[in-house]
């Protein structure tokens, strides 16, 4: 593909504006985030000198540890639920749907409503005077609205599983679509039943899509701010809420920076471990 035509200098020249912008808008700010996390707040500025105090605070205080654990736990649950729900859907479109393109469009349309309002819709559904409660009341199944539906980690998981569904369906669909159909026929000809064929051929070959989807969902949901704010309540608040508080309300930027960096590294490490483990598992299963 790279053939004889292009000399690499032109290639680098074409790539350089993008690299420059990303360097300036991504690398420099992240570096600054790291630098800031080594400072301490003094009034509206930073105190002189360097300190690891923020990291001591972030890693030492149990309330922060709980927040990290909850964020990761909620995101892991969201990722798992979303993948499990989306896989059969993607499988259906890839192997059995007659109008694939129409199905794909139909599946992506709900995701182009405002993200805020999509999340807010769940508040309408789960709320005290919401759809479920008013429905159950009218059916006389309950005589008082249930308050346990909203403002907890469960509400956050349901809402996020809905909000991020497309990020599971599309990558899984793409990897299923790529599977060479003759492999499936070969498996059948050699006597595999439908289940065995799925477990030995389809599932392992679709793992790249599953792993990709898991990362695409896990990373952003761990840092989600809108959903825990709207439907999480105090019991469902996540790390991004604390980062926002430190930046916008408390005004302790170094602590906010340390929280952000630790969560970013935590997410990256977990995602990395997951990808390694999932790849090894997929290989072993083959």
């Amino acid at each position: 593909m790279a053939g004889t035509g292009g000399n690499s200098r032109t290639g680098y020249a074409l790539l350089s504006p993008t690299l420059a912008v990303m360097g300036l808008a991504l690398a420099a700010p992240l570096l600054l985030l790291a630098v800031t996390s080594l400072k301490s707040q003094a009034g509206i500025g930073f105190a002189d000198g360097w300190t690891l105090a923020q990291y001591g605070e972030v890693l030492g205080r149990s309330s922060y540890r709980i927040l990290f654990a909850r964020s990761v736990g909620i995101s892991a649950a969201v990722t798992l639920v979303t993948l499990l729900l989306a896989y059969p859907m993607a499988y259906f479109v890839a192997f059995h749907a007659r109008h694939k393109f129409a199905w794909l469009i139909a599946l992506t349309i709900p995701f182009w409503t405002s993200y805020l309002l999509r999340v807010f819709a769940w508040k309408i559904i789960l709320g005290y005077g919401g759809v479920i409660n008013s429905g159950l009341l009218r059916l006389h199944l309950i005589d008082q609205p249930l308050s346990m539906l909203l403002y907890n980690p469960f509400a956050v998981v349901v809402t996020l599983a809905h909000a991020w569904a497309a990020f599971a369906i599309l990558p899984i669909y793409v990897s299923l679509e790529k599977i060479d159909r003759s492999l499936l026929e070969a498996a059948s000809d050699l006597g595999d039943g439908a289940v065995r064929r799925f477990l030995r051929i389809t599932l392992p070959l679709s793992m790249p899509g599953v792993i990709g989807a898991a990362i695409l969902i896990f990373v952003p949901t761990t840092g989600d701010y809108v959903t825990p704010s709207l439907v999480g309540g105090p019991a469902g608040s996540m790390i991004a809420n604390m980062i926002e508080v430190q930046f916008n309300r408390v005004g302790n930027w170094p602590l906010g920076a340390a929280l952000a960096l630790v969560s970013m590294v935590l997410v990256a490490v977990i995602a990395g471990l997951f990808v390694t483990a999932a790849r090894a598992a997929a290989k072993a299963a083959r």
Binding site: A25, A28, L33, V219, G223, Y225, W253
Partner: peptide, 12 residues
């Protein structure tokens, strides 16, 4: 996570 992108640019 978007929040990290947002606050780092804010710092810059």
């Amino acid at each position: 996570p978007d929040i990290v992108l947002g606050i780092s640019l804010l710092l810059l």
